[in-house]
Amino acid sequence: MPNSASAKKDLRQNQTRRMHNRAVRSVMRRQVGAVRAAVKAGDIEKAEAEFRLAAKRLDKAGAKRIIHPNVADRTKSRLQHLIKAAKTATAAS
């Protein structure tokens, strides 16, 4: 437990920041899941629309260091690859 006043304030600030970061990360993960679900369902247009939102959320989280920026870029790349593969599979059949 913190003893000094500044340590107590640090604890309060850390808890507030932690809850905010968890909320941002949770929304971001749900958005990525929505893209994956749309691709799995075969709805390419919806997947592309969801991807635009996911990319925005990933970029924001990376910029604020909630996740590493490289993780944000890698996730966007993998989602884009999923969408592209689904497009070619739909066009081929």
Rank of each mutant, 00 (worst) to 15 (best):
H20G: 03
A91S: 14
A92F: 11
D43R: 12
R25K: 07
K87A: 13
D73W: 00
A55Y: 01
G62N: 03
T16M: 07
Q31L: 06
K64P: 00
E50C: 09
I83D: 13
R65H: 10
R52S: 13
R29Y: 03
H20A: 11
A47N: 10
D73E: 08
N21F: 02
A47P: 09
R57V: 02
A34K: 10
L53M: 14
A54P: 03
R18G: 09
T90C: 08
H81Q: 15
R17V: 03
V39Q: 05
D43Q: 15
K60V: 01
P69S: 05
A72I: 00
M1N: 08
R78W: 10
R17D: 11
S93A: 15
S4R: 06
E48A: 12
F51L: 10
N70Y: 04
R29A: 12
T16D: 11
P2F: 04
E50L: 07
A34V: 02
E50S: 14
A54K: 02
Q15I: 08
K9I: 10
R78T: 09
A55F: 01
K76A: 10
H20M: 06
D43T: 09
K84Q: 15
N70E: 13
K9F: 07
S6D: 14
L82C: 11
N14V: 12
A23I: 00
Q80F: 11
A37K: 11
V24H: 00
R12Y: 07
S26V: 00
V32Q: 05
T75F: 05
A86N: 10
M19H: 02
A92V: 15
H20E: 13
N14P: 00
A86P: 07
K9L: 14
D10K: 08
R18P: 02
A5V: 13
A41Y: 02
F51M: 12
H20R: 05
L58N: 07
T88W: 07
S93R: 14
Q31V: 01
N3F: 08
D73N: 05
S26Y: 04
R57H: 10
R74D: 12
G42N: 05
I67A: 09
A47W: 06
T88Y: 13
A7Q: 11
I83W: 11
T90N: 12
Q31D: 09
I44E: 13
R65E: 15
R18M: 05
R78V: 10
A5R: 13
A91R: 14
H81K: 15
G33W: 03
V27E: 04
E48W: 05
A47R: 09
M1I: 06
R25P: 00
R18D: 10
G33I: 04
E45V: 11
M1K: 03
G42D: 06
M1T: 08
R78Y: 06
T16G: 03
